[in-house]
């Protein structure tokens, strides 16, 4: 494992911890899109189907369990927890996220590396992850006061995918035959979706002002 990959995983882990910290200790999910969280839960459930069939490493299995457990518990918190539920911006979080599922699934059926159940589901999870942040970005645009934890959460999520791109570039030059167009292109699309957010995030940081996205 190279340093970019490890840094990417750690940023991803940090993003989940920041979100859990906000939800668990402050008992608030204000500014967080349930739609995006539901899509992430579907992403991990369809990607990690191999968790009980293929053993890669203890690190790999543990991280998969963490991402599965955290994504489903976040959805549970926002939907079911008495206090957290109350802070959910339901009227603002209106993105029709179910409409993303079918196109991603059809694309995975059409464009994949191997037409097997596990491989199609894995490909589907990559396509879905690429666009899963959209409801969250729309919600951020509508939020007047984006709190620090929410801003950091989205920043860490974007950084995670950016670091994965560096990891792929590194692996391409250091490992023979390492060519995987599907994760690369969907990962690139996913990172590009954060470009606008990154710009305003750094602007607010530079000028020491509160983060706000133009509607």
């Amino acid at each position: 494992m190279n340093i970019f990959r490890l840094a990417g995983d750690m940023t991803h882990l940090a993003s989940v911890l920041v979100l859990l910290l906000k939800i668990h200790t402050i008992k608030s999910c204000a500014g967080i899109s349930l739609k995006t969280q539901e899509l992430f839960a579907i992403v991990f459930a369809s990607r990690y189907l191999d968790i009980f069939t293929d053993f890669i490493s203890l690190y790999n299995t543990l991280m998969k369990l963490i991402f599965l457990g955290s994504s489903f518990s976040i959805v549970w918190y926002i939907r079911r927890h008495k206090l957290v539920r109350r802070s959910y911006d339901k009227d603002q979080d209106t993105f029709r996220h179910y409409f993303l599922l079918l196109p991603c699934f059809i694309l995975a059926l059409l464009i994949n590396e191997k037409f097997t159940f596990k491989e199609v589901m894995w490909t589907f999870s990559l396509y879905l992850e690429a666009v899963a942040i959209l409801p969250q970005l729309v919600l951020l645009q509508r939020t007047k006061n984006i709190d620090n934890l929410t801003g950091q959460y989205v920043f860490l999520l974007g950084a995670y995918r950016g670091l994965y791109i560096l990891n792929w570039i590194y692996r391409y030059f250091t490992e023979p035959h390492y060519v995987h167009w599907i994760p690369w292109i969907s990962g690139l699309v996913q990172t590009l979706l954060y470009a606008d957010f990154f710009y305003y995030y750094f602007e607010s940081w530079k000028n020491n002002k509160k983060l706000q996205l133009p509607a």
Partner: peptide
């Protein structure tokens, strides 16, 4: 092999 190489990523 190739399958493992790809699936070792999260």
């Amino acid at each position: 092999d190739e399958a493992v190489e790809k699936h070792d990523e999260l």
